[in-house]
Design a protein around this nucleic acid. Structure first.
Length: 260
DNA sequence: ATGTCCATCACGGATGGA
């Protein structure tokens, strides 16, 4: 089973890119972030025509997440991250697909830091950490996929010094990500590619793509009960070079079939 | 600070968010 995550950066504005990528990559499951569209403007028909069932949690102008499943409808298990009933931002959606709990997340960017946006990011990370602990206790296959807006280590950024004070790379943010992995969550891409420079995002500014000035922001965290099935992982880097594309490239993992 | 891109509101261009 192939699971992908793609910060599409506007699901309607970049619908041709999404459909082209779905056709080419043919993931079984696709987690999308930054729909930037309210629920009623989610392009359900076009996505269905491409062979995918979908659930989504939209929002006008910003945020918005969706989960697509090839040839089936994802079964919603949760809308919104627990821990703050007043949080109205559409950043978390979860579904059960083929015996796997798939969480699609869009973690806050948090810039400028310090400031209220960074405080919100830290609170969101805390909520995610708490919820992730609950998920681990269930001892079931869970994949938390999405745009974490976290650069985990120096290996995940073209020029670490330039990003030290940025909300994506501040120590407390990196430490929170590291803590998740120490609790048992497996960073799929880094596990299969321990020494490789892998980026999933290139800024639109300053010819970042042309210079390969990238960041690794999009991650898969796997619960132990599914991590042993991890057989491959990568980034669909060429997508970032397409016309009218997102500033993120899709990332993907391949899971072997469950035994029994 | 800058750079690019897009949606928004409201119909041209500023603004916000990333």
């Amino acid at each position: 089973m192939k699971i992908a995550t793609f910060n599409i950066n506007g699901v309607n504005g970049r619908l041709p890119v999404l459909l082209r990528w779905l056709e080419k990559a043919s993931p079984d499951v696709a987690c999308l972030q930054e729909l930037k569209a309210p629920d009623e403007r989610f392009p359900r028909r076009e996505i269905e025509k491409a062979g995918y069932g979908a659930i989504w949690q939209g929002q006008k102008s910003w945020n918005g997440v969706a989960i697509l499943a090839k040839g089936r409808d994802p079964l919603v298990t949760r809308r919104g991250l627990p821990g703050d009933v007043d949080d109205a931002q559409s950043r978390y959606l979860e579904a059960a697909i083929e015996g796997i709990l798939v969480g699609c997340l869009y973690l806050p960017n948090g810039n400028p830091a310090p400031g209220p946006k960074f405080d919100y990011k830290l609170r969101w990370i805390q909520r995610l950490t708490t919820y992730a602990e609950e998920l681990l206790e269930l001892d079931i296959p869970v994949v938390l996929a999405g745009d974490y807006n976290i650069i985990p280590t120096d290996l995940d950024v073209y020029k670490p010094e330039r990003w030290r004070r940025d909300a994506l790379f501040r120590p407390e943010v990196r430490e929170a990500f590291k803590a998740l992995t120490e609790e048992g969550w497996v960073d799929a891409l880094r596990t299969l590619h321990p020494d490789e420079r892998l980026y999933t995002f290139w800024d639109y500014f300053r010819n970042a793509w042309g210079r390969d000035a990238g960041l690794r922001l999009d991650h898969f965290l796997l619960s132990p009960s599914v991590a042993h099935r991890l057989s491959a992982a990568g980034v669909d880097k060429p997508v970032r070079g397409w016309d009218k594309t997102s500033d993120h490239a899709p990332a993907w993992i391949e899971l072997a079939d469950a035994e029994g």
